[in-house]
Design a protein around this nucleic acid. Structure first.
Lengths: 156, 156
DNA sequence: CACAACTAAGTTGCACACAACTAAATGGCT
DNA sequence: AGCCATTTAGTTGTGTGCAACTTAGTTGTG
């Protein structure tokens, strides 16, 4: 890769780092959007966007959850989730219900339609796996590396 | 990692894949946003957003470019770039100039202020590198893997 | 030359993502 | 009980990101 002028042993100049930074932050940004594009296509039939699919995955796995918990798992705040959940509710996939014990909290429940949608979502991951061209081990390694970086970044 | 119930030798069920998919697509999405958050902080002083920084990196490296070329490098279309470039122009960092030879094309040029901003951006990558907790080799490996996946996904 | 096909930017509309803020409810603490 | 800090959702405003469309300029072909 001719774009990295310094061999790995020697220190990099600020200018070299700026160039490398370009490549790394760009590649992550681009990969995230490329994934999004393929998911968009795979999810079109289900009427879900990519972030909506993430929310549904959480609900399919762990049943009714307060908005807060969904936000913690997906690293999203209420400013993003509130309108998104309203759209899922308008689509008839979830129901929002203020908790009786703690009236600050709103529980998000799957409707029958929301539960049923899981069946139609089952083939999506296999399509995605094929589209990435990665095998399972590479996929797991990628996930592990990204999770570690995210954890470290969140601490900073 | 207890969340992957099947050992690597045996085939995964659709349900297992749905769970793994959750982890992979989520981790990429989350990592991209975690990067964005740290960049947002590092770029606050420069008055740039993360995508605006990406555009400036391209211009600092390769000088005046038509909107089209910037879009190809950053994998962004005119619907994203046009308003972004208008904001960079309003900030006095770039100048847009319709090409004389091909009047469909608009060249994006750095102003003196835009060129000067590079000096203040030089320390940013080092801060980012430190924040990720990765060494240079890991960073390069991550970039290579992500670039490969993006290329494969774009073909699908 | 005329005209259709193509290309480059820009515009519009919708859906995140996040900062900053508001409103309502809860939990100490005196 | 009274009060204040905290917690939980929701709202508002700005900036992407992208599909679908428009406008203007260019190119190829008969």
């Amino acid at each position: 890769m001719a774009a990295s002028p310094s061999p790995s042993g020697s220190p990099l100049s600020d200018a070299d780092l700026l160039r490398l930074d370009h490549q790394v932050c760009f590649s992550l940004h681009a990969a995230s959007r490329a994934f999004g594009a393929v998911y968009r296509d795979a999810l079109k039939d289900l009427g879900l966007t990519y972030p909506q699919y993430l929310v549904m995955l959480v609900l399919w796995e762990d049943g009714p959850l307060p908005v807060k918990s969904i936000g913690e798992r997906l690293r999203l705040d209420s400013g993003t989730l509130s309108p998104l959940l309203k759209r899922l509710e308008a689509a008839g996939l979830v129901r929002r219900e203020r908790s009786a014990e703690d009236e600050r909290s709103v529980g998000v429940h799957l409707t029958d339609a929301g539960t049923a949608l899981r069946e139609r979502a089952l083939p999506v991951p296999r399509r995605m796996l094929a589209a990435t061209g990665l095998d399972l081990e590479e996929l797991r390694a990628l996930r592990a590396l990204l999770s570690r970086v995210t954890r470290t970044l969140d601490e900073a």
